[in-house]
């Protein structure tokens, strides 16, 4: 049985979160710092959408607006948090292991498995806006040892093929869940057939830049599609410099999501 949903860029949950007022202990850059977030799934103030996809609970497109903005030190447990920096520079201070101070630029990404607990702060200290995609995944075990890994995806050199960045593969960052993240950067008129590991694995494709048809569904910049119960996912790019994030996941931990789908209709546009 095939199931899918399409989420247009403008249909995502939009939040502007300021460093003053209720969120002031979280949001850095008082008094004028603020960040914007477009959430594909329910998160924080946005609770009227889809609860998630498989074990994914957050897929956020965030912009730290200007120098000095971001998140002050805050605690996490359990969730595996992936971040893909698209623009600007992210200064990331993380307590996992012996602690890390990291700076990530376009193409860089990290996987922070919060496990038994860690704290982090994320800041933009350069003048240009910092845009990153954040992905939060439920882990396969609670209270794992916290870990932080990071790598670089060279958008110029690793073009024209689907490259796995996170999950069980050579060169990919480890992910304590049956989920992998790949990236495809290529020009218009290219066609790829992606085979999920099984029909029990779903695929969530997010168009970072450009345009593509996914199983015939036309998507534009920051649109996305989730599809599951299929043998293959056809990706046809429709614009030059198209940039797609492809998340393949076991469709697990989703009793609440299936319940939501029943109430809201299985295929949701």
């Amino acid at each position: 049985m095939t199931n899918s949903f399409v989420l247009r860029a403008s249909e995502r949950g939009h939040e502007t979160i300021r460093s003053t007022g209720a969120e002031s202990s979280y949001i850095a850059g008082h008094p004028d710092g603020f960040l914007t977030r477009q959430s594909s799934f329910n998160f924080h103030e946005y609770q009227t959408g889809r609860p998630g996809f498989g074990p994914i609970r957050v897929f956020g497109d965030e912009v730290f607006q200007g120098a000095g903005c971001g998140y002050n030190m805050h605690s996490h447990h359990n969730f595996v948090i992936c971040a893909f920096v698209l623009e600007g520079e992210l200064t990331h201070i993380n307590t996992a292991g012996r602690g890390t101070v990291d700076q990530l630029r376009a193409g860089d990404y990290y996987v922070f498995s919060a496990g038994s607990g860690g704290k982090h702060s994320e800041l933009s200290i350069s003048p240009e806006n910092m845009n990153a995609i954040y992905l939060w995944v439920l882990p396969e075990q609670l209270y794992l040892p916290p870990s932080y890994h990071r790598a670089h995806f060279d958008l110029r050199k690793r073009r024209d093929r689907i490259v796995q960045l996170v999950g069980e593969a050579d060169g990919a960052l480890p992910m304590p869940q049956d989920l992998c993240v790949s990236r495809l950067v290529t020009d218009a008129g290219k066609s790829f057939l992606h085979h999920p590991r099984s029909t029990a694995h779903g695929v969530y494709v997010f168009v970072v830049e450009g345009a593509a048809r996914i199983n015939g569904e036309a998507l534009e910049r920051r649109d996305s599609i989730g599809v599951w119960g299929v043998d293959s996912v056809k990706i046809e790019t429709a614009a030059d410099a198209s940039d797609l994030l492809i998340v393949e996941t076991a469709m697990i931990d989703d009793a609440k999501i299936k319940q939501w789908e029943k109430v809201n209709g299985e295929v949701w546009h």
Binding site: Q47, R57, H77, G115, S116, G117, L138, P139, E140, Q141, L142, Y143, L144, P145, D253, K256
Partner: peptide, 20 residues
């Protein structure tokens, strides 16, 4: 805004969780 999960602990997890 909590979700019930059926996820087991990693080795040593319960001890760490009790101490948290």
């Amino acid at each position: 805004m909590f979700e019930m999960v059926e996820i087991g602990y990693a080795a040593g997890g319960p001890e760490l969780a009790s101490a948290a």
